[in-house]
């Protein structure tokens, strides 16, 4: 059998074998320094080189070019993680194709050698190859045209600002609050002291836990439908709404916000959002319609107690000494 053909078979076989058999082993849930997808890719390359050397296959430059190009394709498509968007993929593959072309045209001789099988195919010295290629290409072109012409629709992508800038003041139940300075009136003690306390059971012994219990009661009568029993934004109606409800366990929500910001968001809800935050589809009620001011502060207190996060604080509350004014 022709050595070039063997080399081609080795390439295809290695790639298929590795992808089906070895790839799952190298992509565990928690990759290590050795067992990861990039090491896996290097293994493929090493295998290909070693097999070709041991069998003395000496593949021609055109096959080498094919192998190099295909491995690039495989890398960007399956190995690189996280997966890249297709526009970026196209850009990378263009660069990779140019690189492959540079590799084959590095000097006159390699380029001629690369061209040789192609020319032979075109002028009909490789008869079967010419029939196959010349028949397949027009069919592919026709199919591509069909694909391009058939109408396809996808809903428009919508972007929104998750945490819009709050106003300076907000008016709730007839009283104006300055968000810059407003504190939670129920934060009467250090939260961490109560992490081992029991809601309900300790409510009559500890003032703080009484407030947490009342806040939790409000939460589990009103909020859990969207924000979830676990406060992770996966309540029983959460899948219905778009934008999806906030996940308070995530470090990107209440953990980086001030309590006064939450007070504003809870009181005014979806309708209180600016346009960049799509107020028209937010299912967050303006809670001032359903709850008292005290209940709103208590439910905020509860959310921090439950998740263990601390509200964000500024300057005078910080423990690091800064420049004195």
């Amino acid at each position: 059998m022709n050595k070039t053909f063997i080399s081609f078979l080795v390439f295809v076989g290695t790639l298929v074998g590795f992808h089906m058999g070895v790839f799952p082993i190298f992509t565990p849930k928690e990759p290590t320094w050795v067992i990861n997808r990039y090491v896996y890719f290097l293994c493929i390359i090493a295998t290909l080189i070693i097999v070709n050397i041991v069998l003395r296959l000496k593949p021609p430059i055109s096959l080498n070019a094919l192998v190099v190009w295909s491995l690039g394709f495989y890398f960007y498509k399956f190995i690189l993680y996280p997966p890249i968007p297709w526009t970026l993929f196209i850009t990378y593959m263009m660069l990779w194709s140019i690189g492959t072309f540079l590799f084959i045209s590095q000097d006159e001789e390699t380029f001629r050698e690369f061209r040789k099988p192609i020319v032979k195919m075109i002028i009909g010295e490789y008869k079967l190859a010419r029939i196959v290629v010349f028949a397949a290409l027009p069919i592919l072109v026709g199919f591509g045209t069909y694909k391009a012409l058939i109408p396809k629709f996808q809903e428009p992508v919508e972007l929104r600002t998750v945490h819009p800038a709050p106003p300076a003041t907000t008016r709730v139940h007839g009283k104006t609050y300055t968000l810059e300075t407003q504190k939670n009136p129920y934060r009467i003690d250090e939260q961490d002291k109560y992490q081992k306390s029991f809601p309900f059971l300790d409510a009559d012994k500890q003032e703080y836990m009484k407030n947490v219990t009342e806040g939790g009661t409000v939460f589990f009568q009103n909020c859990h439908y969207c924000h979830g029993d676990q406060l992770n934004g996966l309540g029983m109606f959460s899948h219905v709404f778009n934008p999806t409800p906030a996940n308070f366990v995530d470090p990107g929500t209440i953990a980086m916000l001030r309590e006064s910001f939450l007070f504003w968001r809870v009181s005014k809800g979806g309708p209180g959002l600016p346009n960049e935050s799509t107020p028209w589809s937010s299912a967050m009620p303006p809670w001032e319609e359903h709850l008292t001011t005290e209940q709103i502060w208590k439910v905020i207190l509860f959310e921090y107690w439950y998740t263990g996060w601390h509200p964000r604080t500024f300057d005078d509350e910080s423990s690091i000494v800064g420049v004195k004014e």
């Binding site: 069919i139 045209t145 058939i150 809903e155």
Partner: peptide, 25 residues
């Protein structure tokens, strides 16, 4: 209640789909 979704009145499949692919081929 549901949230806002979109609807689209799809255009017909263009006639060109029948003659363009063979022409290109």
């Amino acid at each position: 209640i549901s949230t806002w979704v979109y609807t689209i009145l799809e255009p017909p499949i263009p006639d060109s789909i029948y003659y363009m692919p063979p022409i290109m081929a």
